[in-house]
Amino acid sequence: MKSRRWSRSSGTRDALLRAAREVFLSRGYAEATVADIVETSGISVGSLYHHFGGKPGLFLALWEQFMRGQEERTSRAAKATEGTKERFLAGARAYLEGSWEQRDVARLFLENDGPAEFSTLRRQRGWDWIGGNKRLLGLADTRETHVLVVLLTTVMGEAGREVAACESDDDAQVTIDAVIRVVRRMLSEADRPHTGS
């Protein structure tokens, strides 16, 4: 009995998330209403509030779902590659390919159209991403390497936006290849000895 209830609950959540995605993509977050999502899903208002607490909760759950998928994709690619910098590049390419494959929802999250708490959560996720990249690259803990990792992470975030905005597979692939070349050069620069000015 308990597993059937859980299954029904999971199905309700999935249906609400699918409907929210459809409504947010067609109308944008600000213009979407709970009534639109309820109508599209066929699920009651009470269930929507029970599972997500309202429209902001649905948006944030979609974002978490997208980010979790991106993290899994990049982690798989990095683990399948040898060498610290090559792992970073493989993960970077996987992230960008995910931005293209999921471009509709990626564009939604890059538009800055979301609930008030979204920018704070996204900023926190960015700092977490910087920390993860720093660990992945295994660079010495210096101010210079911290700046490098911040720049690499920022480049990847903006590159994801560029890839998601591409008009064709060819444009996306050219953009991804160009970004990987730039990131490779940045990583190569980190290997060179630097002297003070």
Rank of each mutant, 00 (worst) to 15 (best):
I180P: 06
V147W: 09
L137C: 04
S44G: 13
F52H: 00
E22P: 04
E72W: 02
G160K: 03
Q65L: 07
T142I: 05
A106Y: 10
G46V: 00
R125C: 03
F66K: 09
G42S: 03
W63S: 10
Q70G: 03
E72P: 02
N133R: 13
A178R: 04
Q65Y: 06
R13V: 01
V23A: 04
G138E: 07
G196D: 15
G28Y: 08
L60E: 11
N133T: 08
R18P: 04
C166Q: 08
G54Y: 01
R143T: 06
V45P: 09
R185D: 15
R184C: 12
L108W: 02
R73G: 06
A19H: 07
T145G: 04
V34F: 08
I130W: 01
R8A: 11
F59E: 00
A20T: 00
L136I: 03
A32M: 02
A106W: 06
R103F: 02
V23D: 03
H50F: 15
E117Q: 13
Y29T: 12
I43T: 05
S41N: 11
S75T: 12
E189K: 13
I176W: 01
E117S: 15
T40K: 15
D104I: 01
L151V: 10
E144M: 11
K2A: 13
R87A: 09
E86P: 03
D191E: 15
H146A: 08
Y49I: 02
A159P: 10
E189S: 09
